[in-house]
Amino acid sequence: MKKIIVALAFLALPALGVAAGGADYPLQVAPIDLHNKASLQKGARLFVNYCMGCHSLEHQRYNRMARDIGLTDEQVKSNLIFTGAKVGELMKNAMPKSDAKQWFGVAPPDLTLMARSRGVDYLYTYLQTFYLDPTRPFGVNNVVFPNAGMPHVLWELQGLQKPVYEVHKDKAGNETKTLKGFELVQPGSMSPPEFKEAMVDLVNFLAYVGEPIQLQRQSLGIWVVLFLFLASVVFYLLKKEYWKDVH
């Protein structure tokens, strides 16, 4: 029993980490749909154009991705490979980790399992909550992950925003600030609804990458449950037939 409790606690750790990460700011629900191949394709394009300069997907191959999200190898080679890699290779970037650590303070993590470890709601909210902060090295901060070392690489799409606080005073006159939302200071190439939809696509793609087999697994699970149901009926009838003459 003790081993079972320890195992369950270990499995709960990723969820606890997500809750802690977003404890001071409510996480938005990411409306992902892994059956939406158009969304997955747009998410893949966003990832290789804006994220793959620093982050890699070291456990995902280009050709496997192409097959799963409805692209041909030629489309991937023409539109999604900028490092000279072959279509059968893993999705690694060209940035040396030693240089990355020197530039950012820590080497940017591989994102293959990020959606599974942090959760899609965490990523969806994180990508939308960068704000101007002149005290930070890259001039931006993040509400969900305070003092993150990552620059706001999507600022050209989203624009630049500043936080808007609501000030509360207690009976002693002490002030506390609550984040109310954000105000757009410099518009990006996308409107706020368009950027939100783009982040759905990007997180959708990362959710797929975290477990590429999940769609097939879910489909197979339906047949397994159906088989077990039919088998239980057969076993029940066999049991009745076997025991009908036993008194």
Rank of each mutant, 00 (worst) to 15 (best):
G70P: 05
V209T: 14
F138I: 02
L34S: 05
H35P: 02
V234R: 09
L206A: 04
D24W: 07
S189K: 15
F227A: 12
T83F: 14
Q28A: 15
A172D: 10
A148G: 11
Y62V: 05
V143S: 04
D99P: 03
F10Q: 11
Y126S: 01
D121Y: 03
L57S: 03
N142C: 05
A100D: 02
Y25A: 15
K37F: 08
D170W: 08
A12M: 13
T176S: 15
L215W: 11
Y131K: 02
L11S: 13
Y62S: 01
Q102V: 09
T176K: 15
L113I: 06
L111Y: 02
P109Y: 04
A94S: 09
C51N: 03
T72F: 07
G53Q: 05
V153K: 08
G119R: 01
L220E: 10
V143P: 01
V234M: 09
R118M: 13
Q161R: 11
L40Q: 00
A38R: 07
G105C: 09
K37M: 12
P31Q: 08
L34I: 12
N204W: 00
N174S: 10
V234W: 11
T112A: 08
N63M: 06
Y126Q: 01
R61V: 04
V18L: 13
V143N: 01
K2R: 08
W243N: 09
E156M: 13
V164H: 10
N204I: 06
P146Y: 05
K240T: 05
Q218K: 12
V225C: 06
G221S: 11
A12Y: 07
K171R: 09
E156S: 13
L157T: 03
L179P: 06
D68W: 02
M190R: 04
N63A: 05
A66N: 05
R64E: 14
S78I: 04
A9K: 08
R136E: 14
A23M: 14
M190A: 04
T176H: 13
